[in-house]
Design a protein around this nucleic acid. Structure first.
Lengths: 302, 302
DNA sequence: TTCAGGCATAAGCCCTCCTTATGGGCCGTG
DNA sequence: CACGGCCCATAAGGAGGGCTTATGCCTGAA
């Protein structure tokens, strides 16, 4: 469609040439403008000549020691400068805006069990970065939603995204030291049978009982009450209300300060893990890099 | 200077990509925008992807039946549209402005002897074209002065300009019929010796006297009074005050209506001529073309 | 007169950007 | 439910725009 093309071309000037014109008009010098634009004087000369032919009139008068704008050039220069200022502003705004807000899509579990406790340190480290959490269990599609980076749980084999493993979604019983003390300490798995089990219907309990050699039937006898989020169960555990089976990695802080204890090294593992994922194209964006490095360091450093 | 270049590039976006972005943002469709810009959908997709990588954030969310602007895209779109409107306006203004005013540099002689009588018909034929005359005898340099087209006298061999010969700068005596009648008509060159010679010091008289076989000494005896412009001498001649030697082509109208007569076919010619000149690059500009065609037709048609 | 600064021009090459071709996702309809 | 249409993404390939280097010209200053 050469016709359409030529029509369009005549409506709007060659942009590269216009950019050069703007610089030349500001400096009133081909050489200086070329320097500012990072190109040679010859290139600037070429572009101006091109533009003059398109406009149909000279834009500069070549005087010995300097150039001056022609009437046509004077008409064009102010508006062009303003347009470029606008363009530059918009671009910069989009760029910095892109750096200023980080949209994290995260699983509910991860948000309440881990991010809630740790995000503060990220904010402190990057005060200029506003974090917007988008909490849902959908598998976000970076092409369709305005999301920068996400936490997913699963096998880690998603196409078209860059992934970093955060930790395995393993599970093991946890309880408060006080509760353990009520039965003289928890020495072996069977001791758990003498304590309240939180959410005994959880599939994880079943797996763990099997791995630990405990009778699965015991679980069925217990009163079932699913709390949903691990954080709630953990709180109940801290309060001494019973023993949940949870992902230890979520509660490193509680383990560290003694509010909770992990009585056994035995952990269940269904092969799933938590992953940090983002589009490969944005791997090196400052905010992506900042979040990635922070979260990996945070997990490694504890 | 790769450093400078990359710095610059990061300050201002890739312009072609921005132009595509503007169209896409307006249509909210890659395909339609590509159509408007006279390129393929693939090209639009490519440019948007490029821009998104530069900005560091997606600008559009790809939804099934249509695309929508992301937050970053929304921030950018209005300013970008405005900037392009500005650019388009400035460009159009420069373009049309370039077509609206025609600067003609002309020799004093030509202006008063020919243009003054004829320019009116050009104005009538091109009412939207304003003509600005720049009258001087300098040899204008199109690179240094804001001139569109010029009339020059000389050999016609100037480098770097396009030339059209208007007519030879020949010369021959002219006089009013009444003055001729006072001596019973002018039949042969020698008859002129019985009449007043206007500006007898003019080199043209000398040349013509020699060509006509008249005694050159006669000229020296006459009272010298140079009037300068041929138009003044012609007026004096019409008033019957004497005989000037002038370029016949300037006075076709006077010859046609009988105010002046050219008694002899003998014309002097020093090889010079009047020429229309302009930069080759502007050969096809509407206003250049209009003036050229008009002046050539005007001279041919008489 | 020579030198320095600045623009124009020519030749040549690289890389951007566009095209064609193809595939995938989602929608509607028969 | 399958099929065709619409729209966008991607890959490969090619043309030409636009940059660089090299050189020349002009002018004003020393």
């Amino acid at each position: 469609m050469p016709e359409l093309k030529s029509r369009q071309v005549s409506q709007l000037p060659p942009l590269q040439a216009i950019r050069v014109f703007e610089a030349v008009a500001r400096h009133l010098s081909f050489t200086k403008a070329a320097g500012e634009l990072g190109m040679t004087q010859a290139a600037a000369s070429y572009q101006i000549k091109l533009l003059e032919e398109r406009v149909g009139a000279p834009l500069f008068l070549r005087r010995p020691k300097q150039i001056v704008l022609t009437e046509a050039g004077q008409r064009m220069a102010p508006a062009v400068s303003e347009a470029f200022a606008l363009l530059g502003g918009a671009y910069a705004a989009a760029r910095s805006g892109a750096d200023g807000v980080l949209c994290v899509s995260t699983l509910l579990t991860f948000a309440s069990n881990w991010l809630a406790q740790h995000l503060g340190s990220f904010q402190v480290a990057h005060p200029s970065l506003a974090v917007r959490l988008d909490t849902s269990n959908r598998l976000v599609d970076f092409a369709r939603e305005d999301i920068d980076i996400a936490i997913r749980s699963g096998g880690g084999n998603w196409p078209g995204v860059e992934v970093h493993k955060l930790f395995n979604a393993d599970f093991t019983p946890m309880l408060s030291p006080k509760l353990a003390a009520t039965i003289g300490g928890v020495k072996e798995p069977a001791d758990l049978l003498r304590l309240p089990i939180l959410d005994p219907g959880d599939i994880w309990w079943r797996d763990w009982f099997i791995a630990a050699g405990l009778p699965v039937e015991e679980l069925a006898k217990r009163p079932g009450s699913s709390m949903g989020a691990q954080a709630y169960e953990a709180n109940a555990a801290i309060a001494g209300q019973g023993v949940p089976i949870v992902t230890a990695a979520f509660f490193k802080a509680e383990l560290a300060d003694g509010r909770l204890i992990q009585p056994f090294d035995l952990v269940g593992d269904d092969g799933h893990a938590y992953w940090l994922v983002y589009p490969p194209a944005r791997r090196n964006l400052p905010k992506i890099r900042a979040f990635r490095e922070w979260i990996l360091a945070e997990l490694a450093g504890q």
